[in-house]
């Protein structure tokens, strides 16, 4: 085992190249709904069991199913009201189980990026050939369902092998959401191709804040606003990224959606915010900043 992921170089916040966004925006703001399918009776992966209890585990299964039946529509309406397009972290089996949801995403010009096949199929213990086959399945399925070339990746249920990032670069994936070390995009070290991380925040993730940390809906709104305020302030010096990762089964609950809509109202009400998608952030970064940042990191490595 490695003691360090060896995926990126050290780059201190106080001494790094300046990042700019279109129209002088201070913060690139994107919302990433996880549209997921959890299986009722999935096979066992040696690295992780899918459900805590013997199958069927009706409570967590049905709680997640709520997201597709009821929560998605509420979340989508709130986002559409504030002209926020989603960048969807997609379990691509949704394209088969619930194509009606994909149709809505396509109509709203949302981005679809990869979150694996099912959220109950983990990458742990996959051979390189198996992981490559899974990635090809994802890329082909999203292309068929939307016409989109997949640009982004969030590993299914955040499960990996040590080959994952190398394979992403090989497949031409533009950005990964799997690294949480920064509030700006960063180059990821791969042997072939090129790859960057785009900030997808676990700290802002509704599952982490509401379920794991157990905060209330109104407290979550305060957290999101405070995070935005700080990045907006810092963004005057050096452009920042704020992502809100969502799960419709949580944020689409009746007692949460109104508070979340208020957060969107607050953030999109600021002048210097670029309301965008993961794909657009990555594209802008490659075009304007990637080479410069890479040169800076290389120079620091040599010093």
């Amino acid at each position: 085992m490695m003691r360090d992921p060896q995926l990126y170089d050290y780059s201190p916040l106080c001494d790094r190249p300046k990042i700019t966004w279109p129209n002088g925006a201070r913060v690139a703001f994107w919302v990433a709904p996880n549209i997921e399918y959890y299986e009722f009776d999935p096979p066992l992966n040696p690295g992780r069991r899918a459900w805590p209890k013997p199958h069927p585990d009706v409570v967590p299964y049905s709680h997640r199913d709520y997201g597709n039946r009821a929560g998605f529509f509420r979340m989508m309406e709130a986002m559409a009201k504030y002209n926020v397009r989603g960048s969807v972290s997609l379990n691509v089996a949704i394209c088969q189980h619930h194509p009606e949801l994909i149709k809505v995403c396509n109509e709203l010009d949302w981005e679809l990026f990869s979150h694996g096949i099912y959220n109950t199929r983990y990458t742990y213990t996959m051979s390189e050939a198996q992981e490559r086959a899974m990635m090809k399945d994802v890329i082909d399925t999203i292309k068929d369902a939307s016409g989109q070339d997949v640009a982004g990746w969030l590993a299914p249920a955040l499960s990996y092998t040590t080959n994952t990032f190398e394979l992403l670069a090989e497949f031409g994936i533009q950005y990964t959401c799997d690294l949480f070390h920064d509030d700006q995009p960063q180059p990821v070290n791969t042997k072939s191709g090129r790859l960057i991380s785009v900030p997808y925040s676990l700290e802002m993730n509704d599952t982490v804040v509401l379920s794991m940390m157990g905060k209330s809906s109104r407290h979550y709104s305060d957290i999101l606003k405070a995070n935005f305020d700080q990045l907006y302030e810092e963004g005057a010096e050096n452009g920042q990224v704020m992502c809100i990762p969502l799960h419709p089964f949580l944020i689409g609950q009746p007692h949460r959606i109104g508070n979340f809509a208020e957060v969107l109202d607050y953030i999109t009400g600021h002048d210097d915010v670029w309301v965008t998608t993961g794909r657009e952030i990555a594209a802008h970064y490659y075009e304007h900043h990637y080479d410069n940042v890479l040169a800076s990191l290389t120079a620091r490595r040599g010093s």
């Binding site: 009776d41 096979p43 199913d65 009821a70 189980h97």
Partner: peptide, 22 residues
């Protein structure tokens, strides 16, 4: 592990059909 026998339209069980509230 890379085979998905229930990967088709609707639910992966027969208890209720897939349906959106709205």
């Amino acid at each position: 592990y890379l085979k998905y026998p229930n990967r088709g339209h609707g639910m992966d069980h027969d208890r209720y059909p897939w349906s959106q509230l709205h």
